[in-house]
């Protein structure tokens, strides 16, 4: 019993450890992962500071830097999670993944190990970014912080799984980039991260409500204000958690299904 359990866990943990070791060793990746979202946050936040006006009177005092903060965390998670899987495209063709799928383990292990690894990197970066909170005058409660981390983990799992499934189907990293940009940017633009649904045109507001990523961003926003009510939130915490969990489960299931496809499309 213990032996079987070990045989199931050892490969997942080895895949996870590999992702983390490689990430920590690559200083440029580490630096880029922090500097890029920070730059984007300051650029957009300070740039739109005077232009941005909150819909409704109740929240007139909120500034754009503050509004944008949860969205930037979400952006960081989306990108780190997805692009941690880009190496799968190359490794599928090299001997590395051939050797991994020739090992006596289920291919589901590959999905889980990669998803946990990518999610760890994404959440780690989000946590680093959260250190900036006092700069914008936020003090977050412990349960609020836990909610933000939980939402980050769910979003990380969902998008590493999505990236893995797409990488498994792609023949070139160029193709992977193209497909991901097609998905990622609209998902983020229409997640209530950049502008709230309330102030947008009805069509856009509708899309924001349909976008499952919106509920992850919403959970982060609510976590930052806990125990007080967050301004302009979409749904209750329960609904947000439900949608985020279902999204992660569906995308992991899709990745598990995809990884059963043969490694070689040419033969």
């Amino acid at each position: 019993m213990i032996a079987t359990l070990y045989q199931a866990i050892a490969p997942v943990s080895a895949l996870w450890r590999r992702e983390v070791i490689k990430f920590l060793r690559d200083r440029s990746r580490l630096l880029g992962a922090i500097v890029q979202p920070l730059g984007l946050w300051l650029l957009l936040g300070l740039g739109f500071q005077q232009t941005f006006q909150m819909p409704g009177d109740a929240v007139a005092g909120i500034n754009y830097l503050e509004f944008l903060f949860p969205g930037i965390i979400a952006l960081m998670i989306l990108f780190t999670a997805i692009f941690s899987t880009i190496s799968v495209v190359e490794e599928r063709k090299s001997g590395f993944l051939q050797a991994a799928v020739a090992a006596p383990m289920s291919r589901t292990v590959l999905v889980l190990g990669n998803a946990l690894g990518g999610t760890t990197l994404a959440v780690f970066q989000a946590a680093l970014f959260l250190i900036l909170l006092p700069v914008i005058g936020f003090s977050v409660s412990v349960q609020g912080l836990l909610l933000v981390l939980l939402a980050s983990i769910l979003m990380g799992l969902a998008f590493t799984a999505l990236g893995f499934a797409i990488a498994w189907r792609m023949d070139t990293t160029r193709g992977f980039h193209a497909v991901m940009n097609l998905f990622l940017l609209p998902l983020w633009f229409l997640s209530g991260a950049l502008f709230p649904a309330e102030g947008a045109s009805p069509a856009l507001a509708w899309l924001i409500h349909l976008n499952p990523v919106s509920y992850g961003v919403d959970l982060m926003r609510q976590g930052l204000y806990m125990p007080a009510d967050a301004p302009l939130h979409l749904a209750s915490i329960g609904v947000g958690l439900l949608i985020s969990t279902v999204l992660a489960a569906v995308l992991i299931a899709w990745a598990v299904y995809t990884v059963r496809r043969p490694l070689f499309s040419d033969t």
């Binding site: 050892a10 490969p11 590999r18 001997g95 383990m105």
Partner: peptide, 19 residues
């Protein structure tokens, strides 16, 4: 089937764990 970015020992540990 080796990962260039890892050491010899790390690679062997990794594949040993897969088995």
């Amino acid at each position: 089937a080796l990962d260039d970015e890892l050491t010899v020992e790390e690679n062997l540990r990794f594949h040993g764990a897969l088995y």
